[in-house]
Amino acid sequence: MISSSLPKAVKIIEVGPRDGLQNEQQTISADVKIELVNRLSQAGFVNIEAASFVSPKWVPQMATSAEVMAGITRRPGTLYSALVPNMKGFEAALAAGVDEVVIFAAASEAFSQKNINCSIAESVERFRDVARAAKENKLRLRGALSCAFGCPYQGEVSADSVASVVQQLRDLGCDEIDIADTIGVATPRHVQAVMQRAAQEFPIEKLSGHFHDTYGQALANIYASLEVGITIYHASVAGLGGCPYAKGATGNVATEDVLYMLRGLGIATGIDLDKVVDAGQFISAQLGRKAVSRAGNALAAKRGN
């Protein structure tokens, strides 16, 4: 059901340091990553995806994750999350002192087979030990569901397929589940239908929207999700992170753009937009390019940055 009133407050999970930077071709030093995370912490985020404990062979950019976790200044009240693909990754994340581990599955069988050479069910089964270990060590467990609105290999993905994987991640004990538009093809009504179907399997207040802006639909999709009661969103400072399945396309929606829209709607986030703009300008300067965020660039220009 679409509500006539929007939520009064939402949680923004900042994913720039992990999801945003992981595909960068140039090597980014641990010191720069630490500075970025610290700036984001100071901006007031309650959840920052700071690291990924995957094989450096597959994601070289994340090879410094333990160093980053050791070097950041932790803000009380902020959860620092890390992506883990297996028990080896979990053990490294645990040793690094993460607050939350993120496991992942796809809503598309074709995507699952192409990317990790196994079925969706097999991929979920692989995370059973990780989920159990997370609970035993009192770590928060988040599930990420990719290709929930479309797949680069099979095309359309049904809402029932999404709901099926949500159910499997729920049964592993996930505290929160991300519904991700990995290739950025979703549009508002489609988003609402998928979110409402997922909410039949998992509490809507624990579902989050992870939207890519490949086709310029991310803000509209966030607004559509607000209308059906989604109150957790992922965003990436400066719009870090391209879409690997659409050459030259933008990936994650820019945090500054999301915050600007939410401020205009009177929806509280507890985040200092000016400090996020500063963080976005900082990391963009380090990368030697202009930030993707339109709001961030406009606000920076307005104050003469």
Rank of each mutant, 00 (worst) to 15 (best):
V37A: 05
V37E: 02
V37Y: 01
R39S: 01
R39Q: 02
L40N: 00
S41L: 01
S41A: 10
S41P: 03
S41M: 05
S41I: 02
Q42F: 12
Q42H: 12
Q42A: 15
A43Y: 04
A43V: 11
F45T: 07
V46W: 01
N47E: 12
N47L: 08
I48W: 05
E49L: 05
E49R: 06
E49G: 01
A50I: 03
A50M: 03
A51Q: 08
A51E: 07
S52Q: 13
S52I: 04
S52T: 11
F53Q: 06
F53P: 09
V54T: 10
V54R: 00
V54H: 01
S55Q: 15
P56M: 11
P56T: 09
K57T: 13
K57F: 12
K57L: 11
W58L: 15
W58M: 09
W58F: 15
W58E: 08
W58I: 13
V59M: 13
V59A: 02
P60Q: 11
P60T: 06
P60S: 09
Q61I: 00
Q61A: 01
Q61H: 09
Q61N: 08
M62Q: 10
M62N: 04
A63F: 03
T64V: 15
S65A: 13
A66K: 15
A66E: 14
E67A: 13
E67D: 14
M69Y: 07
M69H: 02
A70P: 07
A70H: 14
A70V: 10
G71L: 09
G71Y: 04
I72F: 01
I72R: 01
T73K: 10
T73A: 04
T73L: 05
T73F: 01
G77I: 11
T78V: 07
T78F: 02
T78M: 06
L79N: 07
L79H: 07
S81W: 08
S81I: 03
S81Q: 06
A82F: 08
A82S: 12
L83E: 03
P85F: 11
K88P: 03
K88D: 15
G89I: 11
G89R: 04
E91K: 15
E91Q: 14
